[in-house]
């Protein structure tokens, strides 16, 4: 229950960090807050030979609001983003989701980028990135590239980052007229969710019609999922008679859950329908 031996480096710049991550000689991992990585190393599920600590790399921390966009540095502490009132005023979804991430003592160390890259299928922040049309900014040896959140998650604990790339920033979009909602179900506070939904609805100027919807589910598949059929069911719906029932029904059909943690596939389908019903009702009322 202790990590196996590894070497440690704390580079002073992102270029140096990329050099260590991508040198190819030894299996290197970035350590941010370590709140997922160190438990996995304690269990020896992860055995990196080199840890590259980003703490001394400048410019990776903090959230900046740019119009209707929130740019969050990858090393931003989860708890700091949770407490940021200006971020909450623009986009309540982030705080609503963050309070479910681990526990306060893990959020005091855990980072936004760390959780996004860890790519746990039951984690909250990846689903939030999908609902907010997130863009991941990755830095590699030949510069930066932008990866859409919906193309970022390839499988359990697997992201689209290349071996020699580091996530430096995530950008969340909050177009005018957007309402957000978040819900999850876990057996105990802080446990990984058996299922959850992060949602964004874009309403028209008169606040009568759902113009667009971005609905993401987590904990019910091998990656966080955009629920496209649910979005189609909601798009064009009127707020007076919102198509919540049809949306919940197609949501239950759309996911491909597996049985785990003593929870069956059919339970997860019904759970997602119930969560969709609740969160959409809350957002529209």
């Amino acid at each position: 229950m202790k990590p196996p031996k590894f070497a440690y480096v704390r580079p002073a710049s992102i270029e140096e960090a990329i050099g260590f991550v991508g040198d190819g000689d030894r299996f290197a991992k970035v350590i941010a807050g370590g709140q997922s990585l160190v438990p996995m190393m304690n269990f020896r599920l992860a055995r990196p030979e080199l840890l590259v600590d980003l703490r001394c790399v400048p410019g990776l921390s903090g959230a900046r609001i740019a119009g209707r966009r929130i740019d969050v540095g990858a090393m931003t502490i989860q708890r700091e983003l949770e407490l940021a009132d200006d971020v909450h005023a623009l986009c309540p979804l982030l705080r609503a989701a963050l309070v479910h991430v681990g526990h306060q003592p893990t959020r005091n160390r855990g980072t936004v980028g760390g959780s996004l890259v860890h790519a746990d299928p039951a984690a909250e922040l990846p689903a939030v990135a999908l609902a907010l049309d997130g863009e991941m900014i990755a830095r590699g040896p030949s510069g930066s590239r932008t990866i859409k959140a919906e193309n970022f998650y390839l499988g359990p604990y697997t992201s689209a980052l290349a071996d020699d790339e580091i996530l430096v920033e995530v950008r969340f979009s909050m177009p005018a007229g957007t309402r957000t909602g978040f819900i999850e179900f876990a057996r105990r506070a802080g446990d990984f969710a058996l299922g959850g939904v992060a949602a964004a609805l874009c309403l028209d100027h008169d606040v009568t019609t759902i113009e667009d919807a971005r609905i993401a589910a987590f904990g019910v598949g091998s990656t966080p999922l955009r629920l496209r059929a649910v979005e189609d069911a909601l798009r064009g719906g009127s707020l007076g008679a919102p198509p919540i029932e049809p949306a919940a029904r197609v949501g239950a059909e759309e996911i491909s859950p597996i049985a785990s943690h003593g929870v069956s596939e059919s339970y997860r389908r019904r759970l997602i329908a119930a969560l969709l019903r609740r969160v959409l009702k809350e957002m529209i009322d």
Partner: peptide, 20 residues
């Protein structure tokens, strides 16, 4: 649980070198 810079944190999943 201990306090790191005044904030509660878990010392069993924190590497000593990261609290330098």
């Amino acid at each position: 649980t201990v306090l790191i810079d005044g904030q509660a944190a878990r010392s069993c999943i924190t590497l000593a070198v990261t609290v330098d």
